[in-house]
């Protein structure tokens, strides 16, 4: 069932908080503490990063202003939020398995990564034919292991 509603303000303000916050962080902490002024340089080391961060800040303010001004009325499926939450979870699971694989690499080398990433992702994606999971894992793990361990 369709229902008409106005998109909440939190995504617009959240985007402003993340992007604007990162720009302010760059302008007032990262660039001043991580660049050194050179009186003889034609182009100061901090100039381009400062210009970029300032421009990003201005652009996100424009983006937010446009978002708030339009009020973005939209028609959405009643179950839209639930579907979106599910899609976020799907991607977050894949990310978590990849990060676990990288940690395994750090601790025990590429063989461990293969043993985490391949079966982990296959199972996460719904593969339940375990012989197939095993064969694919072995086919991927064996060629790389002598190269990197």
């Amino acid at each position: 069932m369709m229902r008409r509603r106005t998109v909440p303000l939190w995504p617009v303000l959240g985007e402003l908080a993340v992007v604007g916050g990162a720009s302010l962080l760059a302008l007032f902490w990262i660039i001043p503490t991580q660049t050194t002024a050179d009186p003889f340089a034609a182009l100061q080391p901090g100039l381009v990063p400062n210009v970029c961060a300032t421009a990003i800040l201005v652009l996100i303010l424009i983006q937010t202003w446009n978002g708030l001004r339009k009020g973005r009325a939209a028609e959405e499926e009643a179950a839209g939020d639930a579907a979106q939450a599910h899609s976020w979870r799907s991607a977050l699971g894949a990310m978590a398995i990849t990060i676990a694989g990288v940690l395994a690499f750090h601790l025990a080398g590429l063989l461990a990564t293969s043993l985490v990433v391949i079966p982990g992702l296959m199972l996460w994606l719904g593969e339940r034919r375990y012989p197939r999971v095993g064969v694919v894992t072995l086919c991927c793990a064996l060629p790389f292991t002598p190269l990197f361990n």
């Binding site: 050194t36 340089a41 381009v48 990063p49 970029c52 421009a55 990003i56 424009i62 446009n66």
Partner: peptide
């Protein structure tokens, strides 16, 4: 959106400045 496109490009240029400054050879945001 145009502003989001420009933000993406500017973020790319911003991150490209990380490393040794080519003129003064001082580290930047490392």
């Amino acid at each position: 959106s145009m502003s989001r496109g420009l933000i993406s490009g500017l973020l790319g240029i911003f991150l490209a400045t990380v490393g040794l400054d080519p003129e003064s050879a001082t580290p930047r945001m490392t």
